[in-house]
Amino acid sequence: MRRGSELRSSLVTLLMLLPGLAGFFGLFFYPMMVTVVRSLRPEGQQVGWTLEHYITFLREPRAREVIVLTFVLSISSTLCSILFSVPLCLVLRQKLRGHRFFRLTMLIPRVVPGLIGALGLLLLFGSRGWVNLFLIQFVPFIDEPVRINYTIPGLILFYTWLYFPFTSVTTLSTLESLDPSIEEAADVAGANRWQVLRHIVIPLIMPGILAGSVLTFMAAFGAFSIPLVAGGNYRPLSVEIYRQIDFTPARWSAASARAMIMAALQVAFLTVYMRILRRPTV
């Protein structure tokens, strides 16, 4: 009797899990498998196996450029977000007047579509945008508009603008769950503010910073809309994939092979990153 009810209970659990699992397998796992199979088929055919799409792409001299560009953009924007988020969170933590407003401001890049962000940034940093007007009028020795759009530093800036909230929100929540008595103890023990920050606060919030930066990295690595409209001649992997199917005849197999390379690179990088992350800090 008891066994029967247990069985029934686990059956109910399974039944309830079913929609989620169906969604996962139908809309993620199966498409991934289709992509894998497609990448191994000759172009436009349903039979036969080949590795040519991987080989031709990796043999192209541009392939290395594309992959390096993707990593350069995602890693440097991750670093920039960390460098920007930590001071911001330390300031926001003090709960100055109006801190709620700034907290909300922090989330804005995440709730608006990336396209709109890209459009606004292109306008702001364009040769007729406010940033260049400001530089020309108020900074000596700059008479010509500085080229920011469609350059690598510009792209890093755009990526950082769009993806820093992942890092800053995680950092802020770690910072706020910190026990204030630890810092007080350090203070009583005679450490000055800088020492408290350097030896107590930063090491303690490091796991939060790293966890947030992983999210920023993943988002930046897979970024699609920003490089699509603001990349110019610089095409990271995601845009490179889209270019394969953008024109007719669409090269689905070539696109799938690139997508698999992208996913593999991301998983490989994340594995390395997680290893570093698991290491005790300091």
Binding site: F24, F28, T35, R38, M218, G222, I245
Partner: peptide, 18 residues
């Protein structure tokens, strides 16, 4: 949560073909 970690473009290709 995996679909939120893998770049959407990777499985969007499969979704489109299906």
């Amino acid at each position: 949560l995996l679909p939120r970690m893998i770049p959407p473009i990777a499985y969007a290709l499969g979704v489109a073909q299906i």
